[in-house]
Design a protein around this nucleic acid. Structure first.
Lengths: 259, 259
DNA sequence: GTAATAGTGTCTGTCAGACACTATTAG
DNA sequence: CTAATAGTGTCTGACAGACACTATTAC
């Protein structure tokens, strides 16, 4: 594999250059906790968006909270690294694993030249609770975004990663159908509304039900669930009056600021 | 910097692990070429979205076309690497440099364990033409997306990167105001429309002018340009009848599939 | 006048936003 | 009956989509 021009640019030799000391993948594991409310009758639970963090045992940042993660190996892509770490940390595959970005500011890791790749994932609450129970409670924590961002001492540049991840899922919650990652296969419109509001507190839509169900331009995101006889499937899990169940279709509308 | 728990997890030593052989940043440099049409009178030019590629001289993929790029150094972030490479390749800072993603599939680079970070940038046409002229014409090429994706032999996984970059700027063109990166400070609505259509050929909007200028919900993306006396500024560069000039404000609307 | 782009008139059906109202059911 | 969520009626003004039409100017 040589040619006449090779004299101009000698074959690449990695050993001649300084190379990074490690390429980890760190994962922001989100979960939606559901807490029943004490009410006279059935009522909607209170949702909360939380994130799992691990307390570091050793240098650097011993005692601080950090995102779970680990180093990439030569025989895997970074997505595979993240997927493997997610499995190792929680025992499950998660409902969504997506690349967030690269964090490479010099000096971000006192151990050396370490470039981290952040991912985010959605994991069901019971998985993280199980993980927490299996381990020392001192070591694993589930925190709300506010706690994590404002109150905890975080290792490395993990506060920045968390902020970016939060921004990203807020944007995705409004612009894609990832809400389905937080919901069961079938859900009521109130549940969907609550999920959106939990992740994006600013979201408010007075005529939510009507808009989703009766505007042509949004037709196709959701569809009513019916049983084998074509009867509408209802749920009264959170309400006295049964509510229609919906599911997401696999259609995601393309938005535009000009249209 | 030690504590009692360190025996559980000995201090990190990079030399104990296999580490990557290099972390390059590759840059997709987009430009919008403008070609006057031969018409009886003034008319709109034909735009084309093009990308700059470099022909590789040596192993691996000698002779194939590749994205310009280079290896990251320990004292710089990957964004700084990309920025430096952009400057080295073109002599300018570019009008927009944005991270695209990481490409880490094992075996993507026969030289070893090399993880590439892709960026994309917008560069004015004359810069790339200058670069092309300064060099051997065999070495530097400006290609339309179709040519690059369908006709050229591309090195590494650069076809995949190009595809991803194309998808990304198409999405951004519709959902953000990056169109301004392709336009002069002041522009007519026809120019804007042409730019959008060039990047997103499917885009069609019969009432484009009216929608941009007279719908309240989109108010704020653009504003009319006026001179110091408050008189509207017009341009007849591409038309007999002068057209109102506009500029982008710094407002970008937030879209939602639910609203 | 002609060719080219810039921009408006107008019509229909749909949607957004606001808010009052009815429906259903467990307890 | 009450409390809670589910869902509808209704009204106004704004918008979308379609397409015909007028406006302006260089040549």
């Amino acid at each position: 594999m040589t040619n006449g021009q090779e004299q101009n640019r000698p074959p690449y030799d990695a050993k001649k250059y300084r190379t990074p000391d490690g390429i980890p993948a760190d994962i922001v594991m989100f979960t939606l906790t559901k807490q029943e409310r004490r009410a006279a009758t059935k009522s909607l639970p209170i949702f909360d968006l939380k994130v799992m963090l691990i307390r570091r045992k050793s240098w650097p940042f011993a005692g601080a909270w950090a995102l779970p993660g680990g180093f990439s190996q030569e025989d895997e892509s970074l997505y595979e690294t993240a997927s493997r770490e997610l499995m190792e940390e929680t025992g499950v595959e998660g409902r969504h694993l997506e690349y967030l970005g690269v964090y490479s500011k010099p000096g971000r890791d006192p151990r050396g030249w370490i470039i981290s790749h952040a991912f985010f994932a959605f994991v069901e609450e019971w998985v993280l609770e199980k993980r927490k129970a299996a381990d020392d409670a001192q070591k694993v924590g589930l925190f709300t975004m506010k706690e994590a961002l404002e109150e905890l001492e975080l290792a490395f540049d993990h506060r920045e990663i968390l902020k970016d991840a939060y921004k990203r899922i807020q944007q995705q919650m409004l612009q894609t159908t990832i809400a389905k990652q937080f919901l069961p296969e079938h859900f009521t419109l109130s549940e969907l509304y609550q999920v959106i509001q939990t992740v994006v507190p600013d979201f408010a839509e007075l005529n939510f039900i009507r808009k989703i169900t009766s505007t042509r331009s949004r037709q196709g995101i959701l569809e009513e669930v019916r049983d084998e006889n074509g009867q509408p499937l209802l749920s009264n899990q959170y309400s006295q009056r049964p509510a229609q169940l919906y599911r997401f279709t696999d259609f995601t509308p393309q938005l535009s600021i000009y249209t």
